[in-house]
Design a protein around this nucleic acid. Structure first.
Length: 455
RNA sequence: GUGAGUUUAGCUCAGUUGGUUAGAGCGUCGGAUUGUGGUUCCGAAGGUCGUGGGUUCGACCCCCACACCUCACCCCA
């Protein structure tokens, strides 16, 4: 055999069954988005690099896929940069486009660009692939789908409450048990303020975020590494040690953060969101988690993260409020809040728990065996009637051996096989075989349709 | 970007100190069964052993480089 063809690392092909199962996820999410009043939009796979650069932090910039300019791009490039091996600045000259890294930043760009055509508050959803030049590993791909819903132009915490409900609805429908963790960036800012390091909020949150994973000792070590004074670390300890019920922790927080205006605002928001959501009844576990930080630096208020309870994988949904995302595109003062479902990880969870409905594995409902030209002509008429009745039906295109046709139907999990041969032809009927039971009936097309639809 | 492990048939994997013609199971195809699948039996096809170099009389096996995949870190969905 020649060299085996392959696809880029971190990308995947999807078989018919996999595609059907992915569509089941997308359809479920899309349906719930619509129920909550979100409207679909789409944006291009590629954006101008200037739109993307600098929005995801230094790490994010490195993970952007850049698209080489067309034409004789090298002629315009600075030779000195090539000599100097300055990949970064050379890339800036050779590439003016990049693949989108998420859906939120392109959406911010969309809002600013179309601001005169939008009615605010503007609620949109978007289900499209994004690309990251990450090194792939478990639950991490270089091409994956995000399913985002965002509200822009509304400061109301009702949005947060509705988004939490929406998350609960989606995972209830998918039958995945989840824990939703909520925090507020303002609380984190308050903490940074209280310990005298308001400038270190990012360092503090990144370290706190690892609390579950590496433990308090290592987190403290990381604080020191990130330049916090021993005194500040000392003052962090009571905050990290907060425990008890949600309300216990909220009141402990408000005691500790009493001198921070922003911190107190955060506590208040958390209270409203948590109580407002719980009052509506929720299937999922919903709880406050002060150690929840999330990487994206643009969140300014509520932060939401969802993890599956029964499978170990990264977060399967995340989101939060960002007060000024459109600001970098020259449109300040517009607040947004949104969530993003990670469809590919949800797929992995459903696969691990074997939770896909059976229908997702099914091809057509009826296959007509092909026993010859005259028989096929009659079968085609029967097929037409079945399809008109809403039954997915097909005919085996080649005049192959019965055995081959039957095993083809079997391997595709087709529940019924219709046989029209010499004797059926003479009687104007067909033999309908139920593949699960092996039972065979001699009926006309209408009779077959009734059998299939009634089952 | 950092570190570790892997790579032999379509898939999952054996392969002895380095010694003729590299094996198994599953899958595929054919037959037992010319109008009946999923079970059984018989048979067949399918491999430049990831790529390139080196050591050796001789390399799937030892050495070097590269690639790929996987896992973890960083970061993230």
């Amino acid at each position: 055999m020649a060299q085996k063809p392959s696809i880029p690392k971190g990308t995947r092909d999807f078989s018919p069954v996999e595609t059907a199962r992915r569509n089941y996820i997308f359809d479920t999410i899309r349906e719930v988005f619509r129920l909550y009043g979100f409207m679909p939009i789409e944006t291009p796979a590629m954006e101008n690099l200037s739109t993307l650069m600098g929005k995801y932090g230094e790490e994010g910039d490195k993970l952007l896929f850049k698209i080489l300019n067309s034409g004789d791009y090298l002629a315009k490039a600075d030779r000195a940069l090539i000599e100097a091996g300055d990949t970064g600045r050379l890339a800036a000259q050779l590439c003016e486009k990049g693949l989108r890294y998420d859906l939120t930043v392109p959406f911010a760009r969309y809002v600013v660009q179309h601001r005169n055509d939008l009615q605010f508050p503007f609620k949109r959803f978007q289900i499209q692939p994004v690309w990251r030049a990450d090194r792939p590993q478990k639950g991490r791909y270089r091409e994956f789908y995000q399913c985002d819903a965002d509200v822009v132009g509304s400061d109301s915490l009702l949005n947060e409450i509705e988004l939490l409900q929406l998350i609960d609805e989606v995972f209830s429908r998918l039958d995945i048990r989840i824990a939703i963790k909520v925090n507020n960036r303002k609380v984190l800012a308050g903490i940074a303020e209280i310990i005298g390091h308001p400038d270190k909020i990012i360092d503090i949150t990144v370290a706190i975020d690892k609390l579950d994973k590496i433990g308090i000792e290592n987190v403290n070590a990381e604080f020191a590494e990130r330049g916090l004074t021993a005194d500040a670390i000392e003052r962090l300890q009571p905050i990290l040690a907060i425990s008890g019920s949600t309300d216990d922790r909220l009141s402990a927080l408000s005691t500790l953060l009493v001198d921070s205006e922003v911190g107190m605002k955060g506590v208040e928001e958390l209270y409203t969101v948590l109580h407002g959501t719980r009052a509506l009844g929720l299937r999922a576990d919903l709880d406050l988690d002060v150690s929840l930080a999330r990487g994206l630096n643009y969140y300014t208020g509520t932060i939401i993260e969802v993890k599956a309870l029964d499978v170990v994988i990264g977060s399967i949904t995340g989101g939060g409020r960002y007060d000024n995302l459109t600001g970098v595109f020259g449109m300040p003062g517009i607040s947004g809040v949104g969530i993003s479902f990670g469809a590919d990880r949800i797929y992995d969870v459903l696969t691990a728990l074997d939770l896909f409905p059976e229908e997702t594995a099914k091809a057509t409902t009826v296959m007509f065996a092909n026993l010859g030209h005259d028989e096929a002509v009659v079968a085609m008429r029967s097929l037409k009637e079945m399809r008109a009745a809403g039954i997915a039906a097909e005919i085996y295109p080649d005049e192959a051996k019965m055995k081959k046709q039957m095993s083809w139907a079997d391997s595709r999990s087709i529940p019924y096989v219709a046989i029209i041969g010499e004797s059926e032809l003479a009687e104007g009927k067909l033999t309908l075989k139920n593949m699960a039971t092996g039972e065979q009936l001699l009926v006309d097309t209408t009779g077959a349709i009734n059998v299939i639809l009634n089952k």
